[in-house]
Nucleic acid binder design. Structure first.
Lengths: 205, 205
DNA sequence: ACCTGAACACCGTTCAAGT
DNA sequence: ACCTGAACACCGTTCAAGT
């Protein structure tokens, strides 16, 4: 037993079954210890969740961009961040509930800031661009997380009016969305609007 | 006592204090009735939450676009939807947790589809555009909801490196983001990429 | 310093019993 | 048809008591 082991097991429980599955009694069972022993190590459940999120934030580490142009590199950072978040949906949901999303994003935003600086975007403009792009990433991940759990993807009670003049649209909306395409679409729109072209790109369009 | 009154009071509790504040015992107190009486009317807590969300979905009604061009009208729909969602953050959080966001968005998406049709966007393209825009709206609202509750807006433990070459950026990131500007920025980028200009707009640019 | 067991105040839910 | 009270299995947390 140690504080670290408690946080380890707690993290695993949250990761696999969601925050609600982390009860002090279940945790004590997995640790092979009395419920009350946990309190000596971590204080209480709230502090334990804080510790879990703290570790996640620290683990986010630094993402490295790939590609040559600033647009490619910023895009790659956003995609890698999304991939990393998607791998642990319950944990990022927890981080979100506890208002720790900004902390988690710091490393990527730093990396993006460097790319923006290269193409002459700085100051308030850079801050707005960073935040718009990272907001797109979290927004997408949070939405997907709900879609992953929730019941049927297709609206249950309500139906698109049958008399619609655009049957192809109706059919497209009846199938679950292509989340990768959706994410890429929004990201490209943002990057296109916020990250200037480099000289090389402008020369050969 | 009636099923309607139970759902009324439950809705008020969730709206004001969040879903966690809706306990069967507290609800019974506000209703002036024994806890177990509630079960006769609504089944159980889960079904009660379903009923609350059902009512919200039905209440979303139809939003009317304003403006003349398709871009303006689509933009106005997204802005009005955001305003409506922001007015009841806890309830939309609940709808999100229960995977009912698509249901809630149906009316607006219908209205947007009409606007897109006017400028010749239909079928799969229209479906993708609709979903990209509404994803931006939910994403933004979900993020703001967390920001509203969570502790300090500014990252707690971590700090932007002090040696940064762009002090204006560091300062901009140290102040809470302008959420309206952030939302408008993303929305404009999306609408610009997805909704074609009308003839009139192209003539007088 | 670290762990246990009993105890308390809370949950959601069931069910027999009342009117 | 509608409501009550007792009861059950769960929570998180405190605290005196052990080693």
């Amino acid at each position: 037993m140690s504080r670290d082991r408690v946080v380890d097991v707690a993290t695993r429980l949250v990761e696999e079954h969601g925050p609600d599955a982390l009860t002090m009694r279940r945790l004590s069972q997995e640790l092979g210890v009395a419920v009350t022993a946990i309190y000596w190590h971590v204080g209480n459940r709230d502090a334990l969740l804080d510790a879990v999120v703290d570790r996640l934030v620290a683990d986010m580490g630094t993402l490295r961009p790939s590609g040559s142009s600033a647009r490619e590199r910023v895009t790659s950072l956003a995609e890698k961040l999304r991939a990393r978040l998607q791998a642990r949906p319950h944990l990022i949901g927890l981080a979100h509930e506890r208002g720790r999303i900004p902390d988690m994003f710091l490393p990527v935003e730093q990396a993006m800031a460097a790319e923006l600086a290269r193409v002459g975007v700085s100051g308030k403009d850079a801050a707005l661009a960073l935040r718009a792009i990272s907001a797109h990433v979290v927004g997408a991940v949070l939405l997907e997380r709900a879609a992953g759990r929730g019941g049927p993807e297709i609206p249950t009670g309500l139906v698109w009016p049958a008399d619609a003049s655009d049957p192809e649209l109706v059919e497209a909306l009846a199938t679950p969305p292509d989340r990768d395409a959706l994410f890429a679409l929004g990201l490209n729109a943002l990057v296109g609007a916020l990250v200037p072209l480099e000289d090389a790109e402008r020369a050969v369009p």
